Computed example of a mutant assay.
Amino acid sequence: MTADALLGPALVEEATKKSGLIWVRGEGSPARALWHVWHEGAACLVGDGPGEQPLPGLVDGGLAEVTVRSKDKGGRVIAWTATVSELAAGSEEWEAAVAELKGKRLNALDAERMPQRWAEECRVVRLAPLEATTELPSGSLAAAPLPTEATTRQAVPAGLPRLLFKRKRS
């Protein structure tokens, strides 16, 4: 086995472990930034449920393109192709992945009930890297933002600063 054959999987694992977000492009969908955990040789994701990240294009048995960013600089480090497998709720693999995911889930409103909710309403997906890495794109990957129901803040009413910052008279 050559050095390149050994370094590729090691770089995929190390870079993906250290990155808080990965960019994942499923079949027929745009790339999305998704949080994950690295568990037993694959990136594990939870989503497609209320209050969780969307996982469009990630179908069981399909392929996905994963781009890993640098945690400190935010630039692309490596890109790899993954096989997608959906873990069956309650299976041994699912339980192990959910235990890891639960520890990394930020801002959960129902931390105690979270695994049960994930089993009932969400999907847990495993992205296992194929043997070879893919070439990083040379150009910009900038794209228009994806449609969302989120809104930006409205303008501050004209009288609000006077109310907040008025001086107290003695």
Rank of each mutant, 00 (worst) to 15 (best):
A3V: 11
D4Q: 14
G8Q: 13
E14Q: 11
K17C: 10
K18S: 11
I22E: 05
W23C: 05
V24I: 12
G26S: 09
L34D: 02
L34S: 03
W35E: 08
W35I: 05
V37C: 07
W38D: 05
G41Y: 09
A42Q: 06
A43H: 11
A43P: 06
L45M: 08
V46Q: 14
G47Q: 07
G49L: 02
G49C: 01
G49D: 00
G49T: 03
G49S: 02
E52K: 08
P54V: 11
P54G: 05
P56I: 09
L58E: 04
V59G: 04
D60E: 10
G61K: 09
L63S: 13
E65Y: 04
V66E: 01
V66M: 05
T67F: 01
V68E: 02
R69W: 04
S70I: 03
K71S: 13
D72F: 07
D72T: 15
K73G: 05
K73W: 08
K73D: 08
G74E: 01
G75V: 13
R76E: 09
V77F: 03
W80F: 15
W80E: 06
V84T: 09
V84R: 03
A88I: 10
A89I: 02
G90W: 13
S91Q: 09
S91P: 10
E93F: 03
E93S: 01
W94R: 07
W94P: 08
W94Q: 03
W94H: 15
A96T: 10
V98G: 02
A99P: 01
A99I: 02
E100H: 14
K102V: 05
G103N: 10
G103P: 04
R105Q: 10
L106M: 12
N107C: 06
A108T: 04
D110P: 00
A111H: 08
E112G: 13
R113Q: 13
M114Q: 15
P115A: 10
R117F: 09
W118H: 04
E120R: 15
C122P: 00
V125I: 15
A128Y: 00
P129C: 06
P129Q: 03
T133C: 13
T133P: 02
L136G: 02
S140L: 10
A143Y: 03
A144C: 02
P145N: 12
P145G: 07
L146I: 00
T148L: 01
T148E: 00
T152E: 12
Q154H: 08
A155D: 11
A155Q: 12
V156F: 04
P157F: 00
P157T: 01
L160C: 02
P161D: 07
P161Q: 03
L163W: 07
L164V: 12
L164T: 07
F165N: 10
K166A: 14
K168A: 09
R169P: 01
R169A: 09
R169L: 11
